[in-house]
Design a protein around this nucleic acid. Structure first.
Lengths: 152, 152
DNA sequence: AAATAACCGAGTAAATCACTCAGGTATATA
DNA sequence: TATATACCTGAGTGATTTACTCGGTTATTT
């Protein structure tokens, strides 16, 4: 099973863009500051998201990243898939040669679990996730903090 | 998220016991041979399973491990819980202080995922999992291999 | 021209993982 | 009582992965 901070960071960053893309492209520096993720680390992640056609980039001042497609069209699973090797609970990655080139005793069990996770995360769009009450609340708090920082 | 070979091995070993416990306690040496898991590694795992009241041990010749309760009463989640630190998709482990001592933007999302996984694995008993057709097939193949080894 | 911000590849410290080793202790059988 | 079996315990280790950094380049706006 692969679901590390890498995937979590990618989803968080996509949340941030979805919440701010009305004001044009969102720079990685802004995401870094708001979400507390190192800029260099984000720079490593975003080419992967772009490669999957989830975001598009604009260079130069005022540039940044924006969603390549509507947030309803992006599933959480897509984001994780983009940055994480494989979202799979089986050991063999579905190839079913777990033990001695045979499907291991427990293969079906992990396959079932993988399917469960996958369908759950495929069923949640970025738009849905972001519309969550708590997300909006935290987001507005981050807005205020940002403003305060700018004032000081 | 924590689901490594550790948890997989534990489940596989429990499968093995469930499939053979009619012939009395199952030794770790047998499990090791049948399932291709290092004996020393199993010895590390089983005290944890015993601590959770999933298996009981009998020492001495002819000894080994047997199920402490009926296989219908053991959920796959119990087995994984016993050997794996936490089966949780959130970063903070549910404590909700993910970022700056606040629930992070994506907290609810990971919490939802954790719940999904947990309820899935809690809903499958060892008995159910073992009754799977493929499991029985592989198991009988292992039986034959064991016999052949003994003959040679 | 200068500032901004995406792009790119290599490198690294720390943690985790799977696994081993070297013993010790209880119990059944001869 | 001796011996073999099999559980029990704790410490150690090599390899891999992880999160993260650094130094620099290229494109675009003002």
């Amino acid at each position: 099973m692969k679901l590390s901070t890498r995937g979590r960071y990618a989803v968080t960053a996509m949340f941030d863009i979805a919440l701010h893309h009305d004001k044009g492209p969102v720079s990685l520096a802004d995401i870094s500051e708001r979400q507390g993720i190192s800029l260099a680390y984000l720079e490593q992640l975003f080419p992967l998201l772009r490669g999957r056609g989830l975001v598009k980039s604009t260079r130069g001042p005022g540039g940044g990243y924006s969603l390549a497609v509507d947030s309803e069209e992006i599933a959480i699973a897509d984001v994780i898939d983009a940055v994480e090797e494989s979202l799979d609970a089986t050991r063999c990655g579905g190839s079913a040669d777990c033990q001695n080139h045979q499907r291991c005793l427990t293969h079906d069990l992990w396959e079932g679990l993988s399917g469960q996770i996958r369908s759950h995360l495929s069923g949640i769009s970025l738009a849905q996730a972001v519309s969550n009450a708590h997300v909006r609340e935290v987001s507005s708090r981050q807005e205020h903090r940002m403003n305060r920082v700018e004032v000081i």
